[in-house]
Design a protein around this nucleic acid. Structure first.
Lengths: 191, 191
DNA sequence: GGCATACTTGCCTAATGCGCATTTTTGCCT
DNA sequence: AGGCAAAAATGCGCATTAGGCAAGTATGCC
């Protein structure tokens, strides 16, 4: 399954992403070309296009990884646990034991807030994975597709809101608190 | 305020959008260049770039108009009415008396579902206007910013989900029903 | 009726997306 | 150990695009 080849590809992907992120933060995104990223990462311009569809994609890449991880984690939660509780438990665990992940997510979200093009790509990627999450929710709770979609969408939207809040507060407070607060807020009835 | 000049600009915008949409539906988006859209719309290629940042932007343009209209409508709802109820009332009114609007929205959402680039732009635009909606919600309910953001986000997300459902069902059922169903679903507590 | 302003357009250049053919690498199996 | 089939990297080329700049043109307004 996890052939060596695949892992190598993943490693290069990650490396290229990190290079892109570094350059983008250093000089500002608009002052970085794909050629430069490729060269700094030690691959050809053409190869860059084999890994990513563009700068934005390279910058946002880990978002996909992480949401995928969330989806998988939810899938392996104890059966019988309601989906919403499962998702909350998963994110709580990630925030507690993988501070780095949340930090990175915040950095990328900050970029997205400053550059509409990146925001668009980020939201597009999230939307794609939202499907998967909705699928897991559906088979977990055995609820109808609409309900599953609503739960999945609400959850990811909640994460984004929390991230934005955290960033607005200059990353001072503890992210866990803000996430909990926002998700609590989503649990309150809207009416 | 609404100078003649502005309205003319808006009219051209609209015309260019319609041209772009027509061509995109006819030949498929990837087989349409900006040059062709510009020529078919009777403006120069360079002017196209003055109106829109790209093909996707031109295609999605009315989404902005409509969400803006929703925001304005919510703003002028009777004071004292809770924001969530106000938003529901507004969308109900639009669906009832402006079938065309919803139809158009569906067409564009269908395009977005088929072309990731368009989806990204659409979500980006929605996100931008979500701010405004959250602002209106905040000053209406007098709630804290997080609550307002949650309500605004949930509402727009609900609309998107409903639109997708409607499209999946081949636009058979009545859109009003699906929208009501999804928003009802969002009112149910997540826990 | 004239003017200041805003809009349009053409020109130009750096940058991008991607198909295609070629070369190089690499995991793997005997 | 060694060769091979598959996968990946690369180079090249072309159509397309984003957007600055400056000159021309239209137009709302006084």
């Amino acid at each position: 399954m996890t052939g060596l080849r695949e892992r190598k590809k993943a490693a290069i992907r990650q490396a290229v992403h990190e290079t892109a992120l570094r350059l983008a933060v250093e000089r500002g995104i608009d002052n970085v070309t794909i050629d430069e990223i490729a060269e700094a990462a030690g691959i050809s311009r053409r190869s860059f296009s084999n890994y990513f569809t563009g700068k934005e994609d390279a910058l946002i890449h880990p978002d996909g990884q992480q949401i995928r991880a969330i989806v998988d984690a939810v899938r392996t939660r104890p059966p019988g646990e309601p989906a919403w509780a499962a998702m909350r438990a998963v994110i709580r665990g990630i925030v507690r034991e993988d501070e780095q992940t949340v930090q990175g997510w915040a950095i990328r979200t900050r970029l997205a807030l400053q550059h509409p093009a990146i925001l668009a790509v980020q939201l597009g990627k999230h939307a794609a994975l939202e499907r998967d999450l909705a699928g897991v929710v559906a088979e977990r709770d055995g609820v109808d597709p609409v309900r599953a979609q609503v739960l999945a969408t609400a959850f990811l939207a909640g994460l984004r809101i929390a991230l934005r809040r955290w960033i607005q507060e200059e990353l001072t407070a503890h992210p866990a608190d803000i996430i909990e607060q926002v998700l609590d807020e989503m649990e309150k009835p809207f009416t």
